[in-house]
Amino acid sequence: LKGVVVAGGVLAGAVAVASFFLRNKRR
């Protein structure tokens, strides 16, 4: 169960970083 929580956190972080980079590329 702990691994699932960690994986979810990593996935959420990756999505946040990806969206951040996409926003920067638009400018």
Rank of each mutant, 00 (worst) to 15 (best):
V6H: 06
V6R: 12
S19D: 06
R27M: 11
V15D: 00
R27T: 14
S19F: 03
A12L: 04
F21V: 11
R27A: 13
G9M: 07
A16P: 00
V10T: 04
N24M: 06
K2S: 08
V5L: 04
V5Q: 05
A7V: 12
A7N: 08
V17P: 00
V6C: 12
L1S: 07
V17A: 10
V6A: 11
K25M: 15
L1K: 09
A7L: 11
R23E: 02
F20W: 05
L1I: 08
L1R: 13
G8L: 10
F21L: 11
V4H: 14
L22R: 04
L22G: 02
A16N: 02
R27E: 09
G9T: 12
V4G: 04
K25C: 10
N24V: 14
L11K: 01
V10W: 13
A18P: 00
A16I: 04
G8S: 13
V4W: 10
V5Y: 00
R26C: 08
L22V: 06
R26I: 12
A16R: 09
G8T: 11
V17T: 03
G8F: 07
L11H: 01
K2V: 08
A16G: 05
R26E: 10
A12V: 08
K25W: 15
A18C: 14
G13N: 11
V17M: 11
S19L: 15
G13E: 04
N24G: 09
L22N: 02
F21E: 00
V6D: 02
A7C: 12
L1N: 05
L1E: 02
V4E: 02
A12I: 04
R26N: 11
V17E: 00
G9S: 15
K25N: 13
G9F: 03
F21M: 02
L22T: 02
G8A: 08
A16Y: 08
F20H: 04
S19K: 13
K2I: 06
V17I: 11
R26H: 15
S19I: 07
A18T: 08
R23S: 07
V15S: 02
N24K: 10
G13F: 15
R27N: 09
K2A: 06
A12W: 11
A12M: 15
N24L: 15
N24D: 04
G3T: 07
G8N: 06
R26W: 13
N24C: 13
R23L: 12
V15E: 00
V5K: 07
V15T: 04
N24S: 13
V15C: 14
V4A: 13
V10N: 03
G8Y: 06
F21P: 00
S19W: 14
F20K: 06
A12S: 07
V17G: 01
V15N: 00
A14P: 01
A14C: 10
A7S: 10
F21W: 12
N24T: 09
